[in-house]
């Protein structure tokens, strides 16, 4: 739960939205209105904040904050 909350705060800061409007099961592409380039910005923030390295091919099919948080946790 801690990872997904931190992740949603990161996304809120990066894309200037209210973190309180984000839910773990949200599709972050749809919810944030972002494309793959902006998703890579989020990935950079994630790798920096959590001190992890996530090859982006491991993110195929990962579209929710909860799913991304699970990938982050496997790399910590």
């Amino acid at each position: 739960m801690e990872t997904v909350n931190t992740l949603m705060q990161l996304a809120a800061k990066r894309f200037k939205v209210d973190a309180a409007t984000l839910r773990a099961e949200d599709d972050f592409f749809a919810k944030l209105g972002i494309d793959s380039l902006k998703a890579l910005d989020l990935l950079s923030d994630v790798e920096d904040k959590f001190d992890v390295e996530i090859p982006d091919y491991e993110l195929q099919g990962v579209v929710t904050f909860a799913a991304l948080a699970a990938v982050i946790d496997t790399r910590r």
């Binding site: 793959s36 998703a39 890579l40 982006d56």
Partner: peptide
């Protein structure tokens, strides 16, 4: 028209 063309698929 994928929003993810720059991510591996």
């Amino acid at each position: 028209t994928d929003v993810r063309p720059y991510l591996p698929s």
